[in-house]
Design a protein around this nucleic acid. Structure first.
Length: 203
DNA sequence: CTTTGGATCGTCT
DNA sequence: GACGATCCAAAGG
């Protein structure tokens, strides 16, 4: 695995379940804002009832069916955006949802976007919060995360993923997701204060 | 610290 | 017409 620098397309062209824990401790950068990925969830395509792709391709989820390594941004609850990294070979529609980041640089900008939240741990400690902090909206849906040509990039700086990530259940799934609600497809960096409380407990 | 309910609209049924 | 891969302020321990 690459210790430093950009990711490769083939890194993402795998099962989201493999990619998700390996994305921990990677860096997301946009403009002057820089943060480390500390909590993620894996979503798969056709066989995952919790996935937006489960019921097939639509205008909203089209990006999930495209090339891996791109950003899938969706709008929810009438007011929030959430960001995913597309995984799997083209056409497979799996993805990794970014649930929490640990801010590294550009906190003043994040604070301004986040309505003046004082504490660093309130800036990116949730899937919609991190999108707000980074100014991610639907206009960034489909952006390639490998080289930063659309102004947003994912890379590694030498900090490896945790050898033993904390593992838990995915959040916010309704009963419609059935047995998928019991799949331990959520991963977090142990001990990071930006991670959801329940996920800070070792598994 | 935890719990509860309101906000708000694009998307798919 | 119903429902979110959510967040936050307010209220109670």
């Amino acid at each position: 695995m690459s210790q430093r620098g950009p990711f490769t397309r083939s890194f993402f062209a795998r099962d989201a379940l493999e990619v998700a824990p390996e994305l921990l401790n990677a860096l997301l950068e946009r403009g002057g804002c820089l943060a480390r990925i500390v909590e993620v969830e894996a979503y798969r395509g056709g066989d995952d009832p919790a996935s937006h792709a489960y019921r097939g391709k639509t205008a909203r989820n089209a990006t999930m069916f495209g090339e891996p390594g791109h950003l899938y941004v969706y709008f929810t609850y009438g007011m929030h955006f959430c960001a995913n990294v597309v995984c799997g070979p083209k056409g497979e529609a799996s993805a990794v949802l970014l649930r929490a980041l640990s801010p590294v640089k550009g906190m003043q900008t994040m604070r301004r976007r986040r309505h003046g939240m004082e504490r660093d741990r309130d800036l990116c400690s949730g899937p919609a919060k991190l999108c707000e902090a980074f100014g991610i909206t639907r206009s960034l849906d489909g952006a390639d995360l490998l080289y930063g040509k659309e102004g947003i990039v994912l890379r590694r700086d030498g900090v490896a993923p945790p050898g033993k990530p904390n593992i838990g259940l995915r959040v916010g799934l309704s009963e419609r997701s059935g047995a998928a609600r019991t799949f331990p497809w959520r991963f977090a960096v142990p001990g990071d204060p930006n991670v959801s409380r329940a996920m800070r407990i070792p598994t």
